[in-house]
Nucleic acid binder design. Structure first.
Length: 268
DNA sequence: ATGGTGGTGATACCA
């Protein structure tokens, strides 16, 4: 046993589907789960009207925002100091889909909202699908050049494994689980030797979903889930991870997001 | 095969 206590860090990631529409459940999440750092996607708010007060009241005094009007938008709220925040625009289209920070211990946290890709999995008739594929290509290029310990989190909008969806057979041609998307996820993973923390802690074929459609009459009963949200770590960072859970109860709270939060705890 | 729900912002569009 080391005489020096290990430093723990609890990081959460949550597609909130409008942070202003979810003030109550965000507050409940900060209270009940108390992460050190919360990464949000789909904040749907401009930076100047981001609800900073809620976060500051709970001790999240360090904020890195990348918002836009109506759609997309990402944010990192932290109890520990954050440095060198940056915002990548891989597609140079002005969409707010990334914000990254560096912590004092050198860890980088990269928070991403990958394009959903529309309905039709064919880029010749659906430009949104093409945008999604191109976004992954840019992430692969970026990823292959990374040389610092990094935690990559967010809504990747792809459920890559057969056991990452409620029915592989019924979703094989549905955007988020098509072969071309799964192949891109595989290339992205290999581009930095990323460790998929979800499957590190819940190996296949264990049940692991992060999203359930609003359209189900009883989402919990039908359990037609997909694992669209991910936390991937550089190998040396993954080695410090001690737990990883999907906070599934948040999907049952009043006026929920359709995504659950992911939480990984590290001991450095 | 279809439509089912929800956020934004005021009409369709996006998820």
């Amino acid at each position: 046993m080391s005489t020096k206590a290990k430093q723990t860090l609890k990081v959460a990631s949550w597609n909130i589907n409008s942070v202003r529409a979810r003030l109550d459940i965000v507050e409940r999440f900060l209270t009940e789960y108390a992460p050190d750092i919360l990464c949000l996607q789909e904040t749907k708010v401009m930076n100047d009207v981001f609800p900073e007060g809620l976060f500051r009241r709970h001790g999240y005094n360090h904020l890195a925002l990348h918002g836009q009007r109506m759609h997309h938008g990402v944010a990192i709220a932290s109890k520990v100091p954050i440095r060198d925040d940056d915002r990548l625009d891989w597609q140079a289209n002005g969409e707010a889909r990334h914000v990254g920070v560096r912590l004092d211990n050198g860890l980088r946290i990269e928070n991403v909202y990958v394009p959903a890709g529309g309905e039709e999995p064919d880029r010749t008739i659906n430009p949104k699908f093409g945008q999604k594929l191109d976004f992954f290509e840019r992430m692969i290029d970026w990823s292959s050049k990374l040389d610092v310990p990094t935690l990559l989190v967010g809504d990747f909008n792809v459920a890559p494994l057969e056991c990452d969806v409620w029915s592989h057979k019924q979703l094989i041609n549905v955007v988020s689980h098509t072969a071309i998307e799964c192949a891109l996820m595989d290339r992205l993973q290999k581009a930095h030797d990323w460790v998929d923390l979800g499957r590190h802690f819940v190996p296949p074929p264990g049940r692991l979903f992060t999203w359930w459609s609003y359209r189900a009459h009883d989402w919990a009963k039908s359990d037609r889930g997909r694992r669209l949200d991910h936390m991937w770590a550089s190998p040396e960072v993954a080695a410090k991870a001690v737990s990883h859970v999907v906070a599934e109860p948040v999907r049952s709270w009043a006026r929920p997001s359709d995504h659950a939060a992911l939480i990984t705890e590290f001991a450095f």
